[in-house]
Design a protein around this nucleic acid. Structure first.
Lengths: 350, 350
DNA sequence: TTGAAAGCGCTAACAA
DNA sequence: TTGTTAGCGCTTTCAA
């Protein structure tokens, strides 16, 4: 049973499908949108007609009446002001982190037929563009990844009442949804493990001090070590890059040659620490135990494989998308935040 | 002279603006779309009315009639098959490269009111989704960044007659537009510079052998050195990561302790080489000259600052967008490729 | 140069 | 349960 092929040159419409199935446009629409109260036999006929005609819904026509774009904005949002030397939005991509966020978001959105529009916002003008874009209804909401705690965009979004979800808690309380991980708990897991492994001269490589997440990891680690009777923990500051991790590990070794355990605030720096320790002839984990943070792709690939704290970035990103869609469907929904629990992933390095 | 404020709850339409300006919808539309043959006085009146009402065009309504989405797909396309251990699309982001591409594309598209939708394609199903998405008219065309030379998507796109532009030449000839840089010439610039600086024992750190760009850089370097009378050039393979660069430099040093010049196939590996050389007590550029490739953000940030070959990624990405838009406006336009010329950027390392 | 009017393809009342 | 119908907001002939 073959219906007429679609008229070449332009794609088939609901009308064509309706004609092919011998029903009305409305019925076809109901079937396509999965609305009940359609006779199973007719449903089947419609489905056949759809297949026969090669019909695909026209999103523009649909958006026009539903007032849903079927698109959300994925905003990489940067500096609050004009301080020079800050990473440009493009550089954000350098961190494995952004790829995980994007994967998590796309993984959730794609099955739902929704796609993220990539936008950068790093000054007043581009922030305004994001707002305008959303207000025009070009996108149904925004998923925000800030590179700075002082980012102004979250507040603007909240004030405008636009649906938005942040990755990571904003520096100041803002009525806006976000997802985050319990950084302190994660750091505590690392501390407990190091102590359980009998390490007594432990140091840490931290992230940038202006990043709340980095500070929480440091504070959590220090507090937990204090509980274990180690009130003083040497630390060296890094900025989450491999290079900074190497430098930090070198400094730590120079000042504390006898250390037997290191907690790095992310895996990339932990990997760098591994490299430096080996160069100094130290064995991991025999001489020095190393724990990272994130459980990013480099952790399992390191030699020795990195014991690390799992930061469920993909799950968190998917949750961002879920929260956003819920808010889009239900605009009066209050802001919600979801805090994920980290977990220790024990491999070889500690 | 204040027109009535827009009815709260829903945004103003053309109709509202027309009423406020005392003209017809059609005229307002003409003014908004910059079509001539509109009385200047009326144009001004319309502009005032637009400002007064806060009107912004509804993209869905516009798309419905123009058949233009105002959106293009930015596709990160991966493996051709199911080989395990390959980088997932999300990992692509790890390279500073992708951020530069995204920046270049957004920089060109944004002023034109067009935005990129981020899509991953790494298996048959996701490739099909990209095709469907484009066929539905959700996006007007595709900008493709492949992580593999054997990517199947370019061919599918070309066969479907969909507007698309690739970053980098496809492995096999395909009737599809692309932008690329003259890798061989860039490598030659590095070779010439090294020789001009009096280096005679030169080695190179390469990229992955399955990547055409990496091979072109290697071949170009070898050929140029051969012309200078150095038919044999030691090389160590890396995969463009810092870590692999360190390992490669170590191997090179172990096998050729007397070398006095290194050309690395990208800046990240060159930076790693810098680090390893310093650890071996070698001065750069006095003992060993180092040249990178890309002129990415790490080049200027290295110590010593990296002499490198400029890969105009942002310009190339902007050109991709320009080519795509031209093709969208003019579907019969044949595939075009634009090859950029690299340039040597001399800093401190060579 | 301007306006009237006909849709673009779809969803959602409302009727039947 | 199904069909009829009225738009969603815009562009674009076609007349005037």
């Amino acid at each position: 049973m073959n219906a007429a092929p679609p008229p070449s040159g332009s794609s088939p419409t609901l009308e064509d499908v309706a004609r092919a199935a011998g029903v009305s446009r409305a019925t076809v629409s109901r079937v396509i949108n999965g609305i009940r109260n359609v006779d199973p036999a007719i449903q089947e006929a419609v489905r056949q007609a759809v297949a026969a005609t090669g019909y695909v819904p026209n999103q523009a026509a649909r958006s026009l009446v539903t007032r849903r774009a079927g698109v959300v904005a994925l905003v990489v949002s940067g500096a609050s002001g004009e301080e020079p030397g800050e990473p440009s939005p493009g550089q954000v991509f350098t961190d494995p982190f952004f790829g995980r966020v994007a994967s998590g978001i796309i993984g959730f959105l794609r099955p739902r037929g929704i796609h993220p529009i990539l936008m950068f916002a790093d000054d007043a003008e581009t922030r305004a563009q994001v707002l305008t874009y959303l207000r025009q209804g070009n996108a149904d909401g925004a998923l925000l990844v800030s590179t700075h705690a002082e980012d102004l965009l979250p507040r603007l979004l909240a004030d405008a009442g636009l649906p938005a979800v942040l990755f990571a808690r904003p520096a100041e309380p803002i009525p806006i949804s976000y997802v985050d991980v319990e950084h302190r708990t994660g750091a505590k897991l690392a501390a407990d493990h190091l102590v359980a492994r009998g390490r007594r001269r432990v140091a840490t490589i931290t992230g940038p001090p202006n990043l709340p997440a980095a500070q929480a990891r440091l504070a959590g680690f220090r507090d937990a070590m204090a509980v274990h009777g180690h009130p003083y923990i040497p630390c060296a500051e890094g900025n989450f890059t491999y290079h900074s991790g190497e430098a930090a590990m070198e400094r730590l070794l120079a000042e504390h040659p006898g250390l037997d355990g290191v907690f790095a605030a992310n895996d990339v720096m932990a990997q760098a620490a591994l490299f430096v320790l080996r160069q100094h002839g130290l064995r991991v984990p025999e001489d020095v135990a190393v724990i990272g943070f994130d459980d990013s792709s480099v952790a399992a690939a390191s030699r020795p494989a990195l014991t690390t704290v799992r930061h469920p970035v993909e799950d968190m990103a998917a949750e961002m998308a879920r929260l956003l869609l819920a808010r889009v469907d239900q605009p009066e929904r209050p802001a919600t935040s979801i805090i994920f629990e980290p977990a220790l992933v024990v491999r070889e390095s500690a």
